[in-house]
């Protein structure tokens, strides 16, 4: 669709087009571009060495390590859930399928803070179950398990939502053929299903990981903000910012902003190269 094809009846007059493009570029630059540049500009106020120095501070290293641990546990668990849910929903007919799909989508419409609140009310020391857990030396809230649960709650539908449409489109004839030829269930999954959904799965995992590493609201409620123990990267950004350690806060923020940019780049790459193997609503 080149410029020459655009005729005056199916497009706007040239000045209108130019004005709309200008408006779109300007709006994006002010709304999205400016905050992004601000993150890096503020981090580099005193130069790169100072910014890097603040990231090698023991508390910063602890925060980065904790965030990596949280992502390393919650993302694979959500991927397993996504695959199990997609397999069940797309390969079988059963009553309550629509309800199950609705339930899986719940975290999309729940505030992260409410998600954290739900985790606290279930596993916190004030609840019956939480009290029992604490008494047995396994505290969930204000500890690592709570942060993992909160991160899982907010990212719960990410992988399932990406692979379900792809698996519906692909149907089950390939799997049935493999079964007829005598392959075991697991063999069918690993040699037929998984290769078919690999790019959609990677896409979902990418989004899930970015959100899990950057989650703030839900984690803020369950973390208790104990330095070195339960302060993830986003939590330590808040703590540093409130202590007026602007450069340290923005240096940590810059690391997460870089993660966001890398995620976007990979996501765009997947959309270009493997468009046909991603969910239909991703093909633009």
């Amino acid at each position: 669709m080149s410029d020459t094809v655009i005729s005056h009846v199916t497009s706007e007059p040239r000045p209108v087009r130019a004005a709309l493009i200008g408006f779109a570029v300007l709006a994006m630059a002010l709304l999205v571009g400016a905050p992004l540049i601000t993150v890096f500009a503020e981090a580099l106020t005193d130069g790169l060495p100072v910014a890097l120095e603040s990231l090698s501070h023991p508390e910063a290293v602890d925060a980065i390590r904790l965030t990596l641990i949280v992502a390393a546990v919650s993302v694979p668990l959500n991927a397993i859930f996504g695959i199990a849910a997609a397999w069940t929903i797309t390969k079988f007919q059963f009553k309550g399928k629509a309800l199950l799909l609705t339930l899986i989508d719940i975290p999309f419409s729940v505030s992260p803070v409410v998600a954290g609140l739900c985790i606290v009310l279930t596993f916190g020391a004030n609840s019956a179950f939480g009290g029992w857990l604490v008494a047995n030396g396994f505290p969930v809230v204000f500890a690592l398990p709570g942060i993992i649960l909160a991160s899982m709650f907010v990212t719960f539908p990410f992988v399932a939502r990406e692979i379900i449409p792809v698996m519906i489109e692909q149907g089950r004839s390939e799997e049935e053929a493999a079964l007829t030829l005598g392959a075991s269930g697991w063999r069918v999954f690993f040699t037929v299903t998984l290769p078919n959904i690999r790019w959609a799965l990677l896409y979902g995992v990418l989004l899930c990981n970015a959100r899990a590493m950057g989650e703030f609201g839900a984690v803020a409620v369950v973390s208790g903000k104990i330095r070195g123990l339960t302060a993830t990267m986003p939590i330590s950004i808040e703590m540093l910012y409130n202590e007026y350690q602007s450069v340290a806060a923005f240096s940590m923020a810059a690391v997460l902003a870089l993660l966001a940019l890398v995620t976007l780049a990979l996501k765009t790459l997947l959309e270009w190269r493997y468009a046909s193997q991603l969910a239909a609503n991703r093909r633009h």
């Binding site: 493009i21 986003p234 997460l256 966001a260």
Partner: peptide, 28 residues
């Protein structure tokens, strides 16, 4: 419309999804 930088602008629309909220908060 087709214009230079369209693909970058398109990818940038998702930045508010990808940027952690605490980062956006202190930047804004």
């Amino acid at each position: 419309y087709r214009f230079p930088g369209r693909r970058i602008l398109d990818a940038a629309v998702d930045l508010p999804f990808a940027l952690p909220t605490a980062v956006a908060g202190i930047a804004l």
